[in-house]
Design a protein around this nucleic acid. Sequence first.
DNA 1: AGCACGCCGACT
DNA 2: GTCGGCGTGCTC
Length: 816
Amino acid sequence: MPESGYLADIILPLLTEKLFTYRIPEELIPVAAPGMRVIVQFGQRKFYTGIIKTIHQNSSAEQEYKFITSIPDDKPLVNDYQLKLWDWIADYYMCSLGEVYKAALPSGLKLESESKIIYNQEYENPSTGNARLDTVLEIIRNHSAISISDLSRLTGKKECMSDVKNLLACNAIFLEEKLKETLKPKTERHVLLSELYHEENALNELFEHLNKSPKQKDVLLRYVELSNDDYSAGIPFKTLSATVSPSAINSLIKKNIFLLQVKDPSLENSTAVAKPVSLNPGQEKALHEIKNVFNENKVCLLHGVTSSGKTEIYIHLIQEMLLQGKQVLYLLPEIALTTQIIERLKKVFGERTGIYHSRFSDRERVNVYNNVLSGSEQGNGIVLGVRSSVFLPYSKLGLIIVDEEHENTFKQFDPAPRYHARDVAIVLAGFHKANVLLGTATPSVESWENCRSGKFGLVELKTRFGEIKLPKIVVANIKESKRKKNMKSVFTPTLLDEMEATISAGRQVILFQNRRGYSSFLECEVCGHIPKCKTCDVSLTYHRHTESIICHYCGYTRRVPGKCDQCQDTRITTRGFGTELVSDEIGLMFPHARVARLDLDSSRSVKSYENIIHDFASGKTNVLVGTQMLSKGLDFDNVGLVGILNADQMLNYPDFRAYERSFQLMMQVSGRAGRRAERGKVVIQTSDPANPIIRFVRDNDFQSFYKEQISERQTFNYPPFVRLIRISIRHKELNELIPAASSLSNSMRKIFGNRVLGPQEPIVSRIQSYYIRNILLKIEKKSSFEKARALLRSTIRDFQKENSGTLKILIDVDPA
DNA sequence: AGCACGCCGACT
DNA sequence: GTCGGCGTGCTC
């Protein structure tokens, strides 16, 4: 006989596949609904914020249910579209709903409890009779409420739970669960002069009037000073009170001469200037074609060469959507979401623009989330964001723009869900019956194929803005220069001559080298030993400025060894080269040129990134050396030359996408050459000038590139003609891993036959002490991918049952 | 993910 | 012999 009463299946931020069912207390039954947040106790003491997935009455007799502790909101935080999307992602990308939940909500909305240890003041006997316990108790007594992790840090012991338990047993302490501090909206008090006194005469009268209260007069004077003639903007209370008496300010507020405003500084926004965008005939035509594709309910791929003015078309489409009261999502890869584009859109759409970026604080992300949730009337009608912004609570999405569609940073790698934001966006748009526009100068092979097959519609924008000519591309043969012995450091004479000419003509140079650091690695000249990372299977990259060698996988850093670790000889050389070496060499060869470097090392902070860009844009620096960061949405006017220092490095990367990536990267970097002024030049250095990809780049030959790539992918069974799932299996012990990996691949072969490849040793076969083997599953397009995933899921489940939990298994669907 | 339980090696 | 480390399994 099932007990009556309502139950809720709750999504918790755990790795577990299953949901947990809680009983809804009587008084919460009227409020509880799917998508609402709940606070529940999980296990002995921990509290989590969960999300109600479903409400039902199917209680089972043998199951005990805990009650939901509380419901913090009065309406759902997650809407039905989102819940549907979470289900889709968990199923398609083969992860748990909890993992999707973790990725989907900003952490400010997922509060967790933390156990605090509290000293029992009533505890009579200060000694437990155990010396070590006494010292632990002393530490607890000296801290008012200490967390377990802090205690283990202070005692220097990893395991302090047993001590805590003992102390608990003799009543010396008790535990309290505290929800970590809720995000309070950040507020700033602003002081605003009443409008009555904005006018000159009235203000003078007021000054007269305040003659008797000199302190208040000071305040007014200071306000006038600070406001720069704009009395309506208001001054932060803090700023004003820095030099004048706060109590005098308060008296003025009481008299209603000053008004007090409470503002959230992160919501400060420029108001829309709302200039209508005018389009040139080419853009007009493209816009028309895009709409035709949308009318067929298809995804539209906008292939526009660099600086063909795609953004204006986006703005036009966004404006139309907003007029219809629909929401717009504008997705950009992380690196392309710069101040340049944000400012541009804010100018047009003002406070209706929400920015969702990982560099923004959690508070700001919570704000954007809530704004989108509140609907487009007063909330953000347009969201400009990185991949995770597909998770925001849209209720009436009309359009999704995926800019730089080909970018692989749209694919999340770690942790799960390993989703591709472009693909998720297409699914999300399907739920909302919204349109999708993919924009890029170098489409991904997948999207190109989707256009060829008729799944997507293709619109091309071929003319560059202002009739700027495509750059002239020259290929310089490194091999030949080496033979003739006329290489100077890493430069061929061709590149050097062009640099010389460009710099002396007062124009700028961009040099592209897709590797940071000084050299790739150090090598002992005597025994050939190469210093490697302790925990990862990679050689350490030499960084000259810090005189250190660094692991680019885990960040492990050590000083440059004075002598070889192996043979103790002091003759150690550097091999390969990175951006750091290139910029040093230029400093030597062109002593008058000002060189800057743009890579992960030089631009860790937003500020330094923007400074580097700004200095180059304003002509402060002449030469910019950088990694692929250079290729993303940066517009410079005076670049006369782009040099690609080593094309082979990218082309020879052992991955089926290496050619595609090289082509895209070279095309994108080349697009930086020659803007407003005359035609730019590009020099590509390579040892293999006959490589077809180099030819396609030189000839700007998209058609042949895609034709060749697509036939190659077809021949060798690679996406988009098959779907890939990569199963990565990891263990700290190699001799545990190898048999496990072959056992898993064998059981997979029983089901999938020769669709299973591997296990193979990846290029980086050990990361952070974990050895890695990969198994690849290729599912041809015509068979059911859904069924394949279900079979794989059960195979892995069975495998995990039979094997130890120390094996880590990670599944990557559509790996990048 | 935590947290409890249980097994095993290192030291009082 | 006990303490502390770590692997395993469970949590509504």
